[in-house]
């Protein structure tokens, strides 16, 4: 280290012996507090704050009954997002990985969800049902797992056949679907009465319940919440996390995190681009790792060569200290 550098470091680290000025910290704080309080009370009175009501299963069943019906079929066949999610909800997939690191699997299944049982059968069993529904529930519960999947998959294929029913349950051709159509219709009926929201909230017979994992997962399996989020510009690939419902400002402090999701390589929809597909499929894990490094760079910036020198290369500091430099000179 050069002598000049050593002297410089010494000036920075030793207590200031140069000229001083009066500076009343507490007065500054009191004025600042008054300003912030006035701003906060004023902005709140002028602009209020966002509170778009939470979605309910009752609302879903009334706004998009066909979609809820199809979602229930997917829960039974195992094709829904929740049913095939993997840890921490079930073992039906390995989840994401960063290269060879499959961190998602490490803690195993800590919040178990059996999609067909928790979303269809248990809620139906929790209250009195018409005889046909009770019979359908027993037919399902006494069937083998393979039989259940065969019924539900056959029905799901028929229901979603674009050349056939195309989502319209009344146009599904006859077939060996077991109790699946009856169960799905029963859930939608139960939801439209409002009972399904209560059945999920008190699942397992709990009086107190503050865990909304199952409700949130199921709500996300259909298109009802997803469509509303798209309409509100809340999707992850359109900076959704930094946006807010209505016309309020959002969580812009998440922009650095959200940024990575906007990059084409983490947004790939071209199946031929295999590298980008791997990146996109594992985007959540890879971006978490990237952000971990970004945060380390930010926290330890004083020790990062190059980054820590930017303020010397772009001397905005001369604006900050121009009054001092003018009066007392600079090197």
């Amino acid at each position: 280290m050069s002598t000049r550098h050593a002297v410089r470091d010494d000036l920075d680290s030793r207590p200031w012996t140069g000229p001083t000025r009066r500076y009343d910290i507490l007065k500054e704080g009191a004025i600042a507090l008054a300003i912030v309080a006035v701003l906060t009370f004023g902005l709140s009175a002028l602009f209020s704050s966002p509170d778009e009501p939470a979605l309910t299963f009752k609302g879903w069943s009334q706004s998009a009954p066909d979609n809820m019906y199809a979602t229930m079929v997917a829960e039974m066949s195992g094709s829904s997002e929740t049913a095939g999610y993997g840890p921490p909800y079930n073992v039906n997939s390995d989840g994401l990985s960063i290269g060879p690191l499959a961190l998602q699997k490490w803690f195993g299944v800590t919040h178990p969800i059996d999609a067909a049982q928790d979303f269809v059968i248990a809620p139906l069993q929790s209250q009195q049902q018409p005889d046909a529904v009770t019979a359908a529930v027993s037919q399902w519960t006494s069937a083998s797992a393979d039989q259940r999947t065969a019924w539900a998959t056959a029905y799901e294929d028929a229901l979603n056949d674009p050349a056939g029913a195309n989502g319209d349950a009344t146009k599904v051709p006859a077939g060996d679907y077991g109790p699946v159509p009856t169960l799905a219709a029963a859930v939608v009926a139960m939801a439209s009465s409002g009972a399904y929201d209560g059945a999920l909230a008190s699942a397992g017979g709990h009086f107190f319940n503050t865990d909304n994992t199952k409700q949130t997962m199921l709500m996300g399996d259909g298109s009802y919440m997803d469509d509303l989020a798209t309409a509100g510009n809340l999707q992850g690939n359109t900076w959704g996390m930094v946006n807010e419902t209505g016309s309020w400002p959002g969580q812009q402090w998440l922009a650095t995190y959200s940024f990575w999701y906007q990059l084409p390589m983490f947004n790939n929809e071209d199946p031929n681009n295999t590298v980008a597909t791997v990146l996109t499929d594992n985007a959540d894990a890879i971006i978490f790792a990237i952000m971990f490094v970004v945060i380390l760079l930010f926290v330890f910036l004083p020790f990062i060569p190059g980054l820590r020198s930017i303020p010397r290369w772009i001397p905005i500091q001369r604006l900050v200290w121009r009054q001092y430099y003018r009066e007392y000179g600079k090197r």
Binding site: V7, R312, Q317, W321, Y325, G329, K330
Partner: peptide, 11 residues
């Protein structure tokens, strides 16, 4: 204490 200016002359 508050960091001295980058180009301050050492008092």
């Amino acid at each position: 204490g508050v960091v001295p200016p980058l180009e301050a002359i050492d008092p």
